[in-house]
């Protein structure tokens, strides 16, 4: 059977990808961030799964006000890096895993998670920056990818509890896949940041630290947060962290924390990364 081996949470700030694409990672502004990512990359090098489910959001790239689903599964053979207004990132094509993607989708819908299905989807920085975080700059991404796109921009976003339950249902679906596959799951976005409005630039390290602590030892606490808790405490765009709940829901009750890194700032965002291994 297929098995989820580990989860990662990581911010997906576009500036991080741009710094890599433009060869700026050695600059003083970026150096501490990329230094902190070295253990992330070392772990990923030794733990490449056959398939990675990347829970991310689209930023007015492939979806917008005319049609935005709450949860969308990418079932295509491949996904192109998108032009989001400044030309596509020069990163490898993202290869899908349609068999597992469809298996999960069918299981989820039959278990009352009504997923939208995308057979053609250009993926923006929300998905490609986490790949760059984990794997640096390879010629080919070493894992196949199932994009799971979540609406985190248009209110009301799915509740933090719904996201967690979706993760639990994904785990059951993966474990019912007959082929022997190792599967990773990443929750992306966050951590605290607010990009718009008079309050732009607000960060909240206390909130972020508590969120990561809960992720490890009390994930239910992160499901009790409300939309307004995120907007108020983590900034309007900090609500992206609900996607980390999907990742956590797909892991075992007890997890081993392998690595954690937190750095301020990346652009206007608090950067966070955490790797959690399943214990069963």
């Amino acid at each position: 059977m297929a098995r989820i081996i580990a989860g990662m949470g990581t911010s997906h700030v576009p500036g991080l990808g741009a710094a890599m694409d433009n060869g700026k990672t050695g600059e003083p502004y970026w150096q501490p961030l990329f230094k902190g990512l070295e253990p992330v990359r070392a772990w990923h090098k030794d733990n490449i799964p056959d398939v990675t489910i990347i829970v991310y959001n689209d930023h007015a790239t492939s979806y917008s006000l005319d049609n935005y689903s709450t949860f969308t599964m990418g079932v295509a053979e491949e996904f192109m890096p998108a032009d989001e207004g400044w030309g596509p990132r020069q990163v490898p094509m993202v290869m899908g895993h349609p068999e597992l993607a469809w298996h999960i989708t069918e299981n989820l819908i039959l278990n009352e998670f009504d997923m939208a299905v995308a057979g053609s989807l250009d993926v923006d920085h929300g998905l490609t920056v986490p790949l760059s975080v984990a794997y640096d700059q390879p010629d080919v991404w070493p894992t196949k990818v199932i994009p799971l796109c979540v609406n985190v921009i248009q209110y009301p976003q799915p509740t933090p509890l719904r996201c967690y339950k979706l993760g639990q249902a994904i785990r059951r679906a993966v474990e019912s896949f007959p082929e022997d596959l190792s599967v990773g799951i990443w929750g992306t976005g966050g951590m605290s940041h607010q990009l718009g409005g008079e309050r732009a630039g607000v960060l909240n390290p206390e909130f972020d630290t508590a969120f990561m602590n809960n992720l490890v030892s009390d994930p239910a606490a992160n499901t009790r947060l409300t939309h307004t808790d995120f907007i108020r405490e983590a900034g309007c765009e900090g609500i992206e962290m609900i996607m980390w709940n999907v990742m956590r829901g797909a892991l075992s009750d007890n997890v081993n924390e392998i690595y954690r890194f937190y750095h301020i700032p990346v652009s206007a965002t608090a950067y966070g990364a955490i790797i959690l291994e399943n214990t069963d």
Binding site: S64, L65, Q154, Y155, G197, I231
Partner: peptide, 30 residues
């Protein structure tokens, strides 16, 4: 209740309707 958060613009149904064409213009720049 998020209306109490200062200096913050949530893309809810009010802004969705008010800003639909404005946002669709911005999106076109992709």
């Amino acid at each position: 209740d998020y209306d109490d958060v200062p200096g913050t613009y949530v893309l809810d149904s009010r802004n969705y309707r008010k800003g639909y064409h404005l946002n669709m213009f911005l999106m076109s720049l992709n």
